[in-house]
Design a protein around this nucleic acid. Sequence first.
DNA 1: ACTTGTCCTGTCATGCCGTCAGCTTACCGT
DNA 2: ACGGTAAGCTGACGGCATGACAGGACAAGT
Lengths: 215, 215
Amino acid sequence: MTGQVRTVDGRVAGRRGQETRQKLLDCLREMLSTSPYRDVKVIDVARMAGTSPATFYQYFPDVEGAVLEIAEEMAKDADTLKELVAGKSWAGKSGPTTSEELVDGFLAFWRKNDAILRVVTLGAAEGDKRFFKIRMTVLNAVAKPLADSVKELQAKGQADKSLDPNAVAGALVSLLASAAEHQKAFTSWGVKIKDLKPNLAPLVYLGVTGKKPPK
Amino acid sequence: MTGQVRTVDGRVAGRRGQETRQKLLDCLREMLSTSPYRDVKVIDVARMAGTSPATFYQYFPDVEGAVLEIAEEMAKDADTLKELVAGKSWAGKSGPTTSEELVDGFLAFWRKNDAILRVVTLGAAEGDKRFFKIRMTVLNAVAKPLADSVKELQAKGQADKSLDPNAVAGALVSLLASAAEHQKAFTSWGVKIKDLKPNLAPLVYLGVTGKKPPK
DNA sequence: ACTTGTCCTGTCATGCCGTCAGCTTACCGT
DNA sequence: ACGGTAAGCTGACGGCATGACAGGACAAGT
């Protein structure tokens, strides 16, 4: 399906080539989490990987191209986020638990991939279609099943039908993404990192069900 | 208070100098809204302003330095956002109105400054203290008075006291910021731009008061 | 006209970008 | 074992951005 990995000039990459390629991606990932995106240079990545800039250009058209590669890898991984919502119950006592686990899982995922997600978020905001698509893949992993949950609750008459389920789910996921990306902001508002989950979870519950969480 | 504008090498800028400086800032602003941040080069800004790179470096240490200047200007402007919340009532029929006006005003501000806010957001996420501070100034213009409103409602027994007002206000502002920055995401979820306000406003109301908005 | 201080730019050293030709290395069939 | 072929890597190069400086242009006051 995906075909073999190819170099920029069309050759197929063998074992050694793939290793080098992967090493470059790993080093780029590392650089992204230590330097501002604007200052990440091909030569630095190549140096860190113990190779030359020319080698980098064998495998990637430019820094952005390589970043996209990393981002796509991460987007695949985001598929596991679905399980945080799909099939979970929002009724009774299990509701708040579902909400907490969702918040926790999402924040953990974002924290784990924060460097690459920063760049993806920027690219998407700048209108780059490729980054936008990747960002939607990640958000949709949660937003789609979440919207389904809202629809289900509405059908059962357990939630306000005047709200658009897609809008609600989207807004909640946006909130989680924003909170994850800017945890420090909450610290400056006097909310400790460990208090983030207990404070966000009731809001998510509130958004999904339209009701205050039970004690 | 602010002292005169100075060049990088310490001279005070006169009338003509300030004009050139301002023109460079305007052109940079323009560039930021048309090219990816990573690709904005000093030479392009200088060319657009009809001057030379050397002139740019007379007034700014680098692109980032000039961006900070623009961002600080915008942060001052954000002060007007306070009036969207301060002194507004969340009781009865005026509650939903307050909520709608807040959403509307905030989205409008973000849209107006989206290019520069994108860079500020990135800088803050990357841990740059200067950008972080500017971002907090903008968000706090809404978050502080919003937290006060929540506290007030809690004191009157009209809202759930188990929630931290600062966390709630912060989360709601984060949501608005994220929604404003990524409006296209909502479009892809089937929520039209013009439907964004009517969908976000009830959520804000819900977050602040803990109650469903009245019909 | 002369002086003074502001303002701009030509020029230069440095360093990254992105490409190519060419060398080395690994694999494979005979 | 050996030669052929394709993969893999890099030195080197022209081009461009960066950032510093010195000197020339310019405006304003005397």
